[in-house]
């Protein structure tokens, strides 16, 4: 990989692409003093700036990791420190002691992320493909239907009513999966993607060969659109992994609480305790289960690590996918 890309702080799609291009050009023409290359001074300044940006992005997370290894005593006495006076593994011991709930939540999160992403990708691409084909008579209507929800959403309470009272999803795992599975914005993205990247002539040739509509979709459209599909799959994976709000609304059963929601619960409980010291002091055992600062940070670490670690794999796929050419006409 070119040098510049490693400095790339956040992995948003367009900038990392640029990073690649820039790096590539630089590499090739290094010896010839390319008129388009940045002068060395500017190059250094830009690198330093990007480096600083990268550090500001990554620093909080490193700090979180350090705090998670700090002893509680040390936090109370000296506050958060970069190099704590006392190190300790207590926070992770604590997490180990609640491993039952933790593993459950991990399982729930992984399940909803995988199943959710699959369902979501199929629903979105089906819908988007249908409204991208000019032969489909009602496509304007269905496009508008999707588009309309982007402008006007039902709001929290009506959504809640639909999900709990019409669909009866409350306290089931589907309540975590289905509400997030359709996304009008992704539908529009995919529709545009299908329109732009899949040419009608390919489909026509398939039809001439006698392929059915479903076969066309799975054997021609799907492989051709992989870059676009990978993008929305990534987005919905992140969406499912980070989602805590739907769980807050629809889940009462502790066995169905996903990881992020568990984190939020702990955080919210701490906040509640702060504001209601009277209750906490009167019945002290009630809040015993709430971890202290370092344990909180340790939870953030274990909740974020898997997704952070798997991101590079995704990203690689994601960029190469995008750069694969579609059809040349």
């Amino acid at each position: 990989m070119p040098k510049l890309e490693q400095n790339q702080p956040t992995v948003t799609m367009p900038s990392s692409l640029e990073g690649m291009k820039g790096g590539g050009i630089k590499k090739r023409r290094k010896k010839y003093r390319d008129p388009q290359a940045l002068p060395p001074v500017v190059n250094t300044i830009v690198s330093v700036l990007l480096g600083i940006l990268a550090i500001t992005c990554i620093f909080p997370f490193i700090y979180v990791i350090i705090i998670s290894f700090t002893s509680e005593e040390s936090i109370v006495r000296n506050g958060f420190q970069l190099i704590p006076k006392e190190w300790s593994l207590d926070a992770y011991h604590y997490l180990w002691s609640m491993k039952e709930q933790l593993f459950r939540s991990y399982g729930v999160t992984i399940f909803i992320t995988i199943v959710g992403t699959i369902i979501s990708v199929f629903m979105i691409t089906f819908y988007a493909y249908a409204i991208s084909r000019p032969q489909f008579k009602y496509r304007k209507f269905f496009t508008f239907l999707a588009f309309f929800t982007m402008l006007f959403s039902g709001g929290l309470v009506p959504t809640y009513i639909v999900i709990t009272q019409f669909l009866h999803l409350k306290d089931t795992i589907w309540a975590l999966i289905l509400p997030l599975s359709m996304n009008a914005f992704y539908i529009i993205i995919m529709r545009t993607f299908f329109l732009k990247s899949v040419s009608e002539s390919i489909l026509e040739s398939a039809r001439i060969d006698g392929a059915s509509e479903l076969r066309i979709f799975f054997q021609i459209i799907f492989p051709l659109s992989l870059p676009g599909i990978a993008t929305i799959a990534l987005f919905s994976t992140l969406g499912y992994w980070n989602d805590w709000f739907t769980a807050l609304l629809y889940i009462d059963n502790p066995n169905l609480v996903p990881l992020q929601s568990l984190l939020m619960k702990i955080e919210a409980n701490l906040e509640f305790m702060r504001q209601n010291m009277d209750i906490a002091n009167m019945q002290s055992s009630l809040f015993n289960t709430i971890p202290q600062e370092s344990a909180k940070m340790a939870m953030v670490v274990i909740a974020t690590l898997p997704i952070a670690v798997s991101y590079p794999f995704f990203q690689k796929y994601f960029i190469s996918g995008l750069t694969i050419g579609g059809v040349k006409e």
Binding site: R133, F136, L167
Partner: peptide, 22 residues
């Protein structure tokens, strides 16, 4: 056109079927 319509209907019905389970 019909087949495309069916594809769309499929999407819309997945939600209903899944929710009916519970």
């Amino acid at each position: 056109k019909k087949k495309l319509g069916i594809l769309l209907a499929l999407v819309l019905s997945i939600g209903t079927i899944l929710s009916a389970c519970s």
